[in-house]
Write a protein that binds this DNA or RNA. Structure first.
Length: 140
RNA sequence: CCAGACGGCCGGAUGGUCGCUCUCCGGCGCCGCCCUCGGCGGCGUCCGGGGGGAGGAAAGUCCGGGCUCCACGGAAACACGGUGCCGGGUAACGCCCGGCGGGGGCGACCCUAGGGAAAGUGCCACAGAAAGCAAACCGCCGCCCCGCGGCAACGCCGGGCGGUAAGGGUGAAAGGGUGCGGUAAGAGCGCACCGCGCAUGCCGGCAACGGCUGCGGCACGGUAAACCCCACCGGGAGCAAGACCAAGUAGGGACGGCCGGUCGGCGCCGCCUUCGGGCGGUGCGCGACGAGCCCGUUUCCGGGCUGCCGUCCGGGUCGGUCGCGCGAGGCGUCCGGCAACGGACGUCCCAGAGGAAUGACCAUCCAUGGGGGGCAACCCCCGGGACAGAACCCGGCUUACAGGCCGUCUGGCGAU
């Protein structure tokens, strides 16, 4: 099967991913993730959705942020995304100005962080956290 | 060359590697039909190829329309909202063009919400004596009285009566301005010019209006983005309009209280019967009329809704397709017109998404800012690309905008 990445289009799907409360914030973007629970689609390739609110700017800025996020996702998600998972990328103020290489790094570390937290119980801190400030601030 | 005025236009370019969306063609796969080679149609997280893919403001949603549904029958008056010099353009406009009046600028040119204040009402703060009735605070002038001085004419201090809008002072505005005459002092009191008003006037202009002439000493301040008057225009809501398909339910149900005019219908009971039915009673929110309410108000009148109140229960609205891209369309040439614009001919098809496509990244060039080198052309390094994204579609207006290009004209300086 080719490593195609699906899209999230329905509001209910976005809400479900947000309700999973599994996220990580990088300087250029925020990543939310959620594992699909129904068995029918569990083996299918990952899906991704994009959010750019009015908070970051007008229509031009929002469009540009969403396009950059889409370019980043198209480059990394086919190899790094997990089958059966849904991801949501949220644009921040820095998304438009941040260099593209740094944006790639943001998504890479965000994916790794979300992966690492996965086997751990949500209320227990990760035992091998190399950079505690973000994780510690999120734990309580 | 410098300063400025007006009008028009552009608003990064090229290439490479990955992508998105619409459409067309060819494969591949699946399904259906005709039926046996095969053909047609549909579908696809599929493959390959061709073509199209944001703006001058796409923005604000302020006007005008198209289109759609509702009220559409209609009408009149009232009410409400809008527009407001004249002529033209336009599908229409509050827009545009050309004029007129007023104001500003040496000028090119710019600004102008510009009907009516002898239809009525209101307001004109503060200051000021006085703000629509005209008005006398300081002044100026005349007459009279008292006192003082003087031989007297007269002068001065104070008071009274009267004249005076020229001067001072207040104000946004004080009832035309300047000059001469005139006067006790003054004043359109008289005269000249300017201004103003009126005209049955004459001339130019389609008109707004302008010019001339005559009359009137001038008697009627401003404000109508204050009420108002006059003329003209105006149904309401909007593509989440609206239509279709699929699914599927409903446009309700239950209980309690209160009210229920007339006729019909239906059910039940009783009586009569010539067996067709009839009469009486009772129940029923089934129908009609009436009644009530709604469609801005009223009337004629058209339509719609309806037992009323309270409590409880249940359901629907998040899918798909169309609307949705040939249009008051773009470009070019010619003709008419000062112009806005109109006409003829030729030519082109030019975005259609829906968590929302038109991009991401790199290189070179082009503008542009800073630094360095060089006599110079130029070279090197760093920074770095305005406002801003179609959401049914057009015509305008308004607002935002890095930088640049072109044309016409004005003033000044210099040269010929």
């Amino acid at each position: 099967m080719p490593p195609a990445v699906g899209r999230l289009t329905q509001r209910s799907e976005f809400l479900r991913v947000a309700a999973a409360r599994r996220k990580w914030a990088a300087p250029g973007l925020v990543l939310q993730a959620c594992e699909r629970t129904d068995d029918a689609t569990a083996a299918e390739p990952p899906r991704v959705g994009f959010t750019a609110t009015r908070k970051i700017g007008g229509a031009v800025v929002r469009n540009r942020a969403r396009r950059r996020l889409r370019a980043v996702a198209a480059q990394l998600l086919p190899s790094l995304g997990r089958a059966g998972w849904d991801y949501v990328l949220i644009a921040r103020d820095g998304t438009v100005e941040r260099p593209f290489g740094a944006l790639l790094g943001d998504l890479e570390t965000a994916l790794a962080r979300v992966e690492r937290r996965r086997p751990v119980a949500p209320d227990a801190p990760p035992p091998d956290a190399p950079t505690p400030p973000a994780a510690a601030a999120d734990a309580p």
